[in-house]
Design a protein around this nucleic acid. Structure first.
Lengths: 159, 159
DNA sequence: AACAGTTAGTTCCAATTAGGAACTGATAGT
DNA sequence: ACTATCAGTTCCTAATTGGAACTAACTGTT
């Protein structure tokens, strides 16, 4: 199976990765959350080649994560802004950054601290159940298959 | 800049992506959380080519996300298990899957429902501040630079 | 003893993608 | 007329991927 065909799988993670799972794409989104909007700014901050950046921005716009907004006419130029769909990716980025802070920071410590404005403390992101409010770990989750794909998604218990 | 050199950037997200940001890697981890442990099982479920799978498993093991455990001698064979570091990626996967459920599900609806065992309700993952317990959105976060990289990480306010 | 089966990879080759640098086009400022 | 801005595109080489076959070290079966 080709990587570019994973959007056709009946798996929400696979479909998500079809839009944001390419190399560089999550770094583009990191910069979007930092307020970067223009092609050359992305290119200089990331150091990615221009045609890879062009491809990633097009995929993000086609996927609905970013929208292309004209910021001037003559010559017509566009910038890229997060849509609500894109903003919904913030928890993914926050958890990934926190994971890097925890396991991969060098001697100087984490490069950025994310302070929660409301309480003034560094954010300690946790996965919590929106219904009961408890912290959630992998073992707390039971998976239920949609009957439409019954038996096709989960591995057979063999070990 | 080459993609394989992003682990040298002083950005926790970039360093995280150096380990888990390649194509296929998060799908390998999805299967790990479903209990898949063996090479051929990953290969058949994912449809990825064997040498890409081999490469990704090696990177995950080198990065500390998976550990290679011998499950038999004669002939010596290993399986791959999540480490605590790997298990800490669960929030990332849960949020990505939920995002796909919300925006990318087809007519049949999301393929899997993640039920929180403790409360019996479908998990609605939310990003919450571990300190005050409030839900957190991008605008609620203020970034503080580590003085060691002062002025080098955040974009200059220009737009 | 000969043969098929299991299983974690490796090897080979063609096709695709990435990296690097230069170039384009429309326009503004000097 | 010349330089700068800025979002791309084009060109070429190098690296990676996809697909299929192959290897090695056994076990179980005829």
């Amino acid at each position: 199976m080709r990587w570019q065909d994973i959007d056709q799988q009946p798996c929400s993670l696979a479909r998500s990765l079809a839009i944001i799972g390419d190399n560089w794409t999550l770094l583009v989104l990191r910069d979007c959350f930092l307020g970067v909007r223009r092609f050359d700014d992305f290119q200089q901050r990331l150091g990615v080649t221009r045609h890879v950046l062009s491809d990633r921005l097009r995929k993000l716009a086609d996927g609905g994560v970013l929208e292309k907004v004209a910021y001037q006419e003559r010559p017509l130029r566009h910038e890229y802004r997060l849509t609500p769909m894109g903003r919904d990716l913030y928890p993914v980025i926050a958890h990934l950054a926190q994971w890097g802070d925890k396991y991969l920071a060098g001697d100087a410590g984490p490069p950025l601290v994310r302070v929660h404005r409301q309480c003034g403390e560094p954010l300690e992101a946790k996965l919590q159940c929106g219904h009961c409010g408890d912290s959630v770990e992998p073992k707390d989750i039971r998976l239920e298959e949609n009957p439409h794909w019954a038996g096709q998604l989960l591995p057979t218990q063999a070990g």
